[in-house]
């Protein structure tokens, strides 16, 4: 292990890590929004839309991100829609994540007994008020563990972005190995940088989980 090599590569890795983080978090933010909307459409069986959403979820959950990115990055320009690599990365992650988030959130919604809805309705609350004040808060807190798992999974998936020439961590590592053959240093740094990104997510996630599950419900 050569420390000088590591030191000289550090700025490149930092830059790459920032890109990974930027695309990762943007993609995840959109995937959560998309997931919420899709889960509600699926759960409340909104006509027509719920079929379309069903197809979308199955399609994106059952194909690799790499292939989805290829379609977006190389396929769309063929039909006249050119998008840059970063946007493509965010979009790909959002679409893949949206499908996973939707399923996680839907199982949260399904864990709430229908009689909770009836109880709220019997108090004169509208459907929207019931969903907003009674169902969503409970569904969200019961889907937090799955959400955290999805976030970690999605951040890891960003490693395939190198395939559409985004200069993320994976790309930088491969590039440097190709140029200078300092394989050990490059791979070690790659692992450490991913850990720096992911460990805090896992730790914060499990704290939030505990808070929501117990403190929030009074134990």
């Amino acid at each position: 292990m050569n420390w000088e090599v590591i030191q000289s590569y550090l700025p490149l890795y930092e830059k790459a890590a920032l890109l990974t983080l930027k695309i990762g978090w943007l993609g995840i933010a959109f995937s959560i929004i998309l997931g919420f909307v899709c889960a509600i459409i699926r759960h409340y069986k909104i006509p027509v839309l719920h079929r379309i959403v069903g197809i979308y979820i199955e399609l994106f959950r059952n194909t690799p991100l790499l292939i989805q990115l290829f379609f977006l990055y190389f396929g769309l320009p063929k039909i006249g829609i050119a998008i840059d690599a970063e946007f493509c990365g965010v979009l790909g992650l959002a679409l893949l994540g949206g499908a996973y988030m939707a399923e996680s959130f839907r199982s949260g919604l399904e864990s709430i007994e229908p009689i909770q809805t009836e109880s709220a309705l019997s108090l004169g609350m509208s459907r929207t008020q019931t969903i907003w004040h009674v169902i969503l808060p409970q569904a969200i807190s019961s889907s937090v563990p799955a959400f955290v798992a999805n976030i970690v999974f999605l951040l890891k998936e960003t490693s395939v972005f190198s395939a559409i020439s985004l200069m993320d961590l994976m790309f930088t590592a491969k590039d440097l190995i190709g140029l200078y053959s300092k394989t050990i240093e490059c791979l070690a740094m790659l692992v450490i940088f991913y850990l720096i990104i992911l460990l805090p997510v896992s730790i914060v996630g499990s704290i939030v989980e505990k808070k929501l599950r117990f403190a929030g419900f009074g134990e």
């Binding site: 019997s122 108090l123 929030g216 419900f217």
Partner: peptide
Amino acid sequence: RQKIGMVFQSYELFPH
């Protein structure tokens, strides 16, 4: 429904 209150067997308080 505001005029018709209902109490359920399983209470159905909002746990959160």
